[in-house]
Computed example of a mutant assay.
Amino acid sequence: MGKICDRNYAGNSMYTMKMIDGVGCCPNCNKPAICHNASVESRALFWALSGDTGNSSRTIAGHMTGNLVESDMMPPGDRDDRSRCIRLLELIPEWLPRLDEMKKYDAPDTKPEGVVINNSGIGAYDNSWSKQIPLIAKEGNFYA
């Protein structure tokens, strides 16, 4: 999934959209056309209703909007969780500069090493936002 392109559907109804899974999408970037020049609130609502959510992406959205539910402060646990976070951040790139704020939800590291998660080098007991944020940035090509 590419970054948001700059086509302005609201300002020019002559652009054609293509349908992907019943959603009108940009023919250039294949992203839902709602992302084009829509407010952060509109894009966040679109994401929340999309079904492409998980605990870690809900944690990011909750923190960034000031609506964090304490039971949802989990960092990504695997590549699929990171992918959902990446897709959220592609839809709302304004949150990227604030991503390091998520580190405040890291628990103190007092547990044993545990099993390594999906060849990431991160043990299941020491998983944290501090360790996952660089992977999100790398896999999402956000700081390239």
Rank of each mutant, 00 (worst) to 15 (best):
D100M: 11
T110C: 11
L91C: 15
I117K: 08
R98E: 08
P108S: 11
L91E: 15
K131N: 00
G114M: 09
N118W: 10
L89A: 12
L99P: 10
L89T: 03
E101W: 02
A107N: 04
E113L: 07
L88W: 14
D106H: 00
P108Q: 12
S130N: 08
L88E: 10
V116S: 03
G121R: 03
I92H: 13
L88M: 09
Y105H: 07
R87H: 10
W95P: 14
W95R: 06
E101Q: 08
Y125I: 01
Y125P: 05
V116C: 04
P93H: 12
V116P: 05
S130L: 06
P97N: 13
L99I: 12
A124E: 06
D109A: 04
Y125A: 01
N127E: 02
N118C: 13
Y125N: 02
K104C: 04
G123F: 04
I92V: 15
I92E: 12
G114I: 08
L99Q: 11
L96C: 09
D100K: 12
I92L: 13
E113C: 08
K103F: 07
L99T: 05
S128M: 02
W95C: 11
R98M: 11
L89P: 12
G114K: 03
L89R: 11
P108G: 09
P112M: 02
I92F: 15
V115T: 15
Y125G: 03
G123D: 07
L88R: 14
E94A: 13
K111S: 03
S120H: 07
I117H: 07
K103S: 10
A107Y: 01
L89D: 02
V116R: 03
E101D: 12
S130K: 06
N119L: 06
R87Q: 11
V115I: 14
S128Y: 00
E90Y: 15
E101P: 09
E113M: 04
